[in-house]
Each structure stands twice: as C-alpha cells, then as structure tokens.
Amino acid sequence: MAEITTNQEGMAPANRMKFILGGALIAAAILFLIISSTISTAQYFLTVEELYALGDEAIGRELKVEGVVDGDTIEFDANTLTLRFSVVHIPGDMNEIERMGGLAEAAHQALLDPETLRLPVVIHGPKPDLLQDQAQAIITGQLSLEGIFIGEEVLLKCPTRYESEIPLQVEQE
C-alpha cells in the first residue's frame, strides 16, 4: 500500500473510511476470537444434584462439579497416587446458602444429612493440602459409566477456617 493521501484540513472521507474499516476489522477479529474460544472451551459447572439430573447425558463429558468434601471418605494410596473421596451436594445459589446460615453452616448441614446426594470422586495425583472435611471442592473431570467422577483437577476452599465463629471450646477468662 502506498502512502495515504490526505487533504490538509483534516481527514479525507476515503481515508476516514479506511480507519473505520480497519478498526472494525480488528474489533471483529477480537470478537471472533472470544466467541470461538468460548465455544471450544466452555464447561458445565454443576452441583451434585444437577449432575445426577443430567443422567446419561453427563457421562463422558468434560465438566466441573461443586460439592463439599466428606472427610471420612478420604483415602489416598501413595503407591499408585490414587486419591478417593466423596463430595456431598450443596446448593449452587449464594442466596440459598445465605438462608442456610452461610457457607460453613450449609456445608455442615449437608454432611450431617444422610439424604444428601453424594458423588464418589477418584483423582490420580497428589493429595492437595486443603483437602479436608467440609472443604468446598470444585472438581474438573468426567463422570464414568459406573457413576464415579474421574477428576483431573480439584480446586479447594475452606470456608470453615477463616472468618468463622470463634470455636466455643475455647476457655472463657
């Protein structure tokens, strides 16, 4: 492309058009990038209940599941580096959790209730530092035919530890 001709007073209409077109092209390319990347990488983010509600449709699909870790079920085999645990259902809606008395209380209730839906999880890899009873877990992976969630990655948060109520067993002075 040769140098663009302009008139002295400002931008020639043809020149202006070129800039608008160029800008629009870049914007369109960015939009395309975002849309195509979203389509190719978006994953379901489900609660345990929602995962079971999907039924067979969920099997073999890459997705994320959220639940509360049941500490009694944690098993780790260091020789094969296999980690097994169960997560119990916790509502995905923040308002509902607030109504239940906050995340820590909701997690506590969910674990005590035998009716709560549970999902067995298997992960190959190390035992994460934060994996403990009542931790909130977000697991990425696939549901197998046997109904076990084969995780690839687990993200953990411990709502009970920080900014929680001061434990009652501490002595009063």
Partner: peptide, 30 residues
C-alpha cells in the same frame, strides 16, 4: 477477554439457567 471470562458463568446462568465456566484454555486461546 478477561472481563468476559470472569462474568461468563454469571451470564450463562442468567440466560440458560445452567452455569457454564471457561478456564485457563479459554484465556490462552483468546
């Protein structure tokens, strides 16, 4: 891209009723 990635789960839940997320691969691609 960043803003979209952060609010996408909220938007998808609002529109479709199901929460969808995008993670590291999305950001790397975009």
């Amino acid at each position: 891209v960043c803003l979209w990635g952060v609010i996408f789960p909220l938007i998808s839940e609002l529109i479709t009723g199901t929460k969808l997320t995008i993670g590291e691969p999305f950001y790397e691609l975009a």
